[in-house]
Simulated assay, not measured.
Amino acid sequence: MKPTVEDVGDAACTIPSSVLQELKPPSEMKRTVSMKDVALAAGVSQPAVSYAYNKPSEISEAQREHILKVAKKLGYPGPSVRGGSLRSGRVGAIGLMISDELPYAFVDPSTTSLLRGIGEIGELANVALALFPLQKDLVNHSGAPGNVSLAVRGFVDGLIVYNMPDDYPAVAMASNQNIPFVVVDAPILKGVPFVGIDDFGSGLIQMQHLLDLRHSKIGIIADRLRPDGVRGRVTQDRFHQATENVVRARLEGYLSAGKAAGLAFEDLTIVEAGGFDDASGRWAAEQMLACKGLTAVAATSDVMALALLKVAGEQGVAVPEQLSVIGFDDIPEAAGAGLTTIRQPLIEKGRHAARLLTELLNAPPSKRAAGATRVILPTELVVRSTTKSRRKKRS
């Protein structure tokens, strides 16, 4: 039988007398400082005090510093997280869906940059972040969707969906359960706030750089086309079955630029790594370097490109004299390696996504679906030392 308030009161009588003797009478107990006390002492309204902790963008930085200074002097611990959750109906947590297994979030440079951007938004400073890794059995429709439903339902107030495959069940569940969410990179859904880049256009620029350097024997390393464990040489059938929108769009950009230069799908050597990590990249690099006659390689991520540079060095293949290499992302390691790449604002993606999610959570449910915001951030070609013009042979 669940204890009632009276039952708990009776149980309190069992506290040892030695403990009771140490307790001070009510008249000597220190009164808890409230938000109202801070407001009176600081000469501001109670909402202003609340904004100082929960919505700092609503007041000036000077006013916020003044309120926090007064609160500290009074010993005010801040608003009750549990109380605020009960009043608002929120649990005080948001979720981040990532496109691989859990360890990936802590080692992948793009994901860690996204997390950094999310963490820089003050409105989420006191909010917990839960990670939801990709469940491959559900992507292949061999698992029970209820597992994901239990993880999402009631566990978070909102979600940031990062680079997930098309038709991933948990995304549909979040939508059906009216959980506010923002998509970063993929999938692209009607009526859902989106933050990303022009992957097709950026891929086209990436390939065009190699074509402008007179390369025609070009290889492509693609991270992953589907989360099904398949890797190896990519056929047209495999390409058309792709569910990873970002990689697919970049490949479409490569193919479009190649077609304009007279290169068909069969003229390009495309290898799928089957994953996004360094080990997958090294495996793909070995397959690529086994293909004779290639003079340049474009990779759909810097992780893949950097893995290729390492394997090329181990095999004695000179870059860029024998092989030009271009990546995508411009992660911190790219500059140190002299990697030519496409720069995208990874941290800024996290900032925009966090802001959009905050706006969703603060908006009335009736207005959440109205005019979903779509943010497309700029990219740029960064030319370093891993690409070089291929000289024509003298006749």
Rank of each mutant, 00 (worst) to 15 (best):
G117Y: 08
H141P: 01
L189M: 10
N163S: 15
V184D: 01
L134P: 01
L124F: 07
G154D: 13
P109A: 10
L129A: 01
D166G: 02
G158S: 03
P165D: 04
P103W: 04
F106C: 03
H141C: 05
P169A: 08
V161T: 05
S175I: 07
E120T: 10
F181L: 13
D100C: 14
H141W: 08
A172F: 04
A174H: 06
D157K: 01
I160P: 00
E101I: 12
D137E: 13
G146P: 04
A186I: 00
L138M: 09
I118W: 06
P180V: 04
Y162P: 00
S99D: 13
L129H: 06
I188N: 11
V127G: 03
A144H: 09
S175K: 09
D167K: 00
V183Y: 10
V182C: 02
H141N: 13
T112P: 08
L189T: 01
I98D: 12
I118K: 02
L189V: 05
D137W: 13
P169R: 01
I179P: 05
M173G: 04
V107L: 06
V127F: 00
S110E: 11
V152L: 12
P187E: 13
G119E: 06
G117C: 10
M173F: 15
D137Q: 11
Q135Y: 06
A186E: 02
A105R: 14
P165V: 02
V161L: 03
L102T: 13
S110L: 15
G146M: 09
A151W: 07
A172N: 07
M164F: 08
V139M: 12
V156F: 12
V182R: 03
L114C: 05
P109D: 03
P180H: 10
E101P: 00
D166S: 07
G119C: 07
M173I: 08
G117L: 06
A105V: 13
T112G: 07
A130T: 10
N140G: 03
V183I: 07
F181T: 00
P180T: 05
P133L: 14
G119Q: 08
E123Y: 09
V152E: 00
G146A: 11
A144E: 15
D167V: 01
I98P: 00
I118A: 04
V182W: 06
S99L: 14
V183L: 04
G119R: 11
H141L: 08
G158L: 02
P133C: 10
P165G: 05
L124V: 14
L134Q: 06
R116F: 08
S175E: 09
L138Q: 04
N176V: 12
V161C: 10
K190C: 11
G158D: 00
S110N: 09
V182Q: 01
S142M: 15
A172Q: 06
